[in-house]
Design a protein around this nucleic acid. Structure first.
Length: 609
RNA sequence: GCGCGUGUAGCUCAAUUGGAUAGAGCAUCGGCCUUCGAAGCCGAGGGUUGGGGGUUCGAGUCCCUCCACGCGUGCCA
């Protein structure tokens, strides 16, 4: 793969630097990178500058001497010293073709990760009794993409949907529904949600508390349920606490009702998740209730190890380098959200034995996860039972904003439900597909309505997901449906479109060209080939940094290069059969890579659109 | 107050982790459908990278400082 070419170049240079500098070659880093622009060759080595300075040599002289002794092993066409000591390297077409061949015959150059420990990804974060809204969008699709990315390398992944399914808020809504004699079997999520809000209001006695609660935006449960924060409403809360207490002691009637609330919520949630084309189902639900019985043990484990202390009746964990402690037990004996997360991190690292635990949660939870991870390190849950170090990672993504640059809301000020958002995107996608199918020259011309709307869904959803994943995750972004579904430029549909053109081309061209020799005559062919060879290293780079936008940017570049190639290099109408077959095979490989890459992003690739 | 984050073209965003002339997409302007899908291609203009200092062969990137905005900050989740 490109890795092979790049690592060959790197090793050749290491040995050459080693000879010139009279030092062990393994310790030399020639800093080999892909060149930014073709005029600087295919690869460049920047190591001569730093090495020259450290060894009191002129970087340019050093680079020149290195080039005098280097043995490239046949992959390099030319190498020149430029500027202050860059080495610009152009590789031979033969080397590109050889790697391309290998990539095409194998698994696109992707090498499996041998790590057998599972990866845990905490994502989605549904709250029982609430619809999914735009706040859940990012956690869900980023998390699913990171899961797919690891799975692409053969890793085992646990998608953990850490449901907000336990605690006082749930007890409150259950208490209210029961006291109103509402039939839980026929309950809709809308009704449940209304009851939830009413229960919140009932439990709140001061207007200021209500206002401040309304100002809070929505998102995954772990940072949104502050609506409970209030000082009064003793009565309603008192009743709810009785219900909670009975629940915790296993009252079977109440547990039965509680389960119905969950079923009601999740039925609707899974409909939305299905539309979103993410692999999250009932088997991924492991909510707060799962950890309910473990909380007391977690607290005492910290206490027994001298890592937690009593303070004003509460139990806190203190950290050396900061004032803020982590509260893990309230003075009234209750446990907190942090306690549940500690139980979860223990389960994930000690029971599931994951060596990577990734929390895809809003950036506002930074402090919480810093505390959580430090606490886990204090007690040793940063190692698996078999002694492997665990990567504990928080992916702090930014908020979704409306065009007023404030957290996205409807005109009436309520939260935008995910379902309505998805439906709008699907409608736009479908309208566009139908419009284009009117054209008799379009391959979609004779398709029936169902087929067209299936494609419209893939396009609309793809547009939303690509828009979300294609920029740096930590930044807030403005949700602009029109821009996302504009389908031009750096968008999901632009990439899908290229793949659709490729499948048409292959259909007309009579199928795949498995063994056809590659010919790289035109510059567009060469550029496309070099880009294709980077697929594996881009995936590695993306998973290493957990930054899906790297893959997006690369796929967009690949698509641009293909479009440019396709414009200037006739395929089926090329001069001779060798060229035709070569270009068909390049197109086919490009199509496979686009489909594979989009799949990692959780985006479908329609055959026609 | 303290902590964290963000600031790049009119707008939305990149920048291979310190590399060469800061790149794309929208929008604007100009070309290309009588050859494989124009959701496309080719080209043009557009920048004091929030300001100021510093580190070095080299800084959007690292350090200091100031500014603007956002978020968080002990018994909520």
């Amino acid at each position: 793969m490109s890795i092979a070419i790049k690592s060959n170049i790197k090793e050749s240079l290491q040995r050459a630097f080693g000879v010139v500098l009279e030092m062990p070659w393994e310790s030399v880093d020639p800093v080999v990178k892909k060149s930014q622009s073709p005029e600087h060759g295919d690869f460049q080595a920047n190591g001569a500058m730093g090495l020259g300075k450290r060894n009191k040599l002129s970087p340019i002289d050093l680079a020149k001497r290195v080039l005098e002794v280097v043995d490239w092993g046949g992959v390099v066409d030319s190498a020149k010293v430029a500027g202050p000591g860059f080495i610009n390297i152009k590789i031979t077409n033969e080397a590109i073709i050889e790697q391309l061949d290998e990539m095409s015959l194998g698994d696109l150059g992707v090498e499996p990760d041998p790590d057998s420990h599972p990866v845990v990804i905490d994502l989605c974060g549904v709250n029982v009794a609430k619809q999914l809204h735009v706040g859940h969008l990012r956690s869900t699709i980023i998390g699913d993409t990171l899961a797919r990315l690891h799975e692409r390398f053969g890793r085992r992944v646990f998608r953990e949907n850490h449901l907000g399914d336990w605690g006082l808020p749930i007890a409150m809504v259950l208490e209210r529904l029961l006291s109103q004699n509402i039939n839980l079997d026929t309950l809709s999520l809308d009704e449940l949600n209304v009851a939830y809000k009413e229960a919140q209001l009932q439990a709140r006695d001061d207007v200021r508390g209500l206002r401040s609660a309304e100002k809070l935006q929505s998102g995954p449960h772990r940072f949104v349920e502050l609506e409970e924060q209030n000082s009064g409403a003793i009565d309603a809360q008192g009743k709810a606490k009785l219900v909670l207490n009975a629940l915790q002691h296993g009252d079977s009637d109440l547990l039965n009702g509680w389960q119905k609330l969950i079923d009601c919520t999740m039925k609707s949630v899974f409909e939305s998740l299905d539309l979103l084309h993410v692999k999250i189902g009932p088997e991924h639900s492991r909510g707060e209730s799962f950890y309910g019985d473990l909380l007391g043990g977690v607290v005492s484990e910290f206490q027994e190890n001298g890592l937690a202390e009593e303070d004003g009746g509460a139990i806190v964990i203190r950290f050396k380098n900061r004032e803020r402690p982590m509260l893990i037990k309230k003075s009234d004996g209750g446990f907190l959200y942090a306690t549940t997360d500690l139980a979860a991190i223990r389960f994930r690292t000690q029971e599931l034995c994951a060596d990577t635990v990734i929390y895809v949660v809003d950036a506002r939870q930074r402090d919480h996860f810093k505390d959580l991870f430090d606490a886990a390190r204090l007690i040793g849950w940063d190692k698996t039972p078999d002694g492997k170090d665990v990567d504990l990672v928080h992916i702090p993504f930014g908020s979704v904003l409306g065009d007023d640059k404030k957290p996205l809301k409807t005109r009436s000020g309520s939260n935008v439900t995910l379902q309505s958002l998805l439906e709008e995107a699907i409608k736009k996608g479908t309208d566009e597909v139908i419009k284009r199918s009117q054209n008799p020259k379009s391959p979609t011309h004779n398709m029936d309505e169902d087929a067209l709307s299936a494609i419209g869904r893939q396009i609309g959803i793809g547009a939303i997901k690509y828009a979300d994943l294609s920029s740096d995750l930590v930044r807030d972004y403005v949700f602009d449906m029109d821009r996302m579904v504009a389908f031009e430029g750096n968008t999901g549909p632009y990439i899908q479109y290229a793949a659709a053109r490729i499948s048409s081309l292959l259909q007309k061209g009579g199928g795949k060209q498995k063994e056809a020799p590659f010919v790289l005559g035109e510059p567009q062919e060469r550029l496309l080939a070099l880009q294709l060879l980077q697929y594996d290293s881009v995936l590695v780079d993306t998973v290493k940094n957990l930054e899906p936008h790297r893959l997006c940017t690369w796929l967009f570049e690949l698509t641009e290069m293909f479009s440019s190639f396709y414009q200037s290099c006739p395929v089926l109408k090329a001069d001779n059969p060798i060229l035709i077959n070569s270009r068909l095979r390049i197109a086919e490989l490009t199509g496979r890579v686009i489909t594979d890459g989009l799949d990692v992003l959780g985006i479908e690739t329609p055959e026609q659109m």
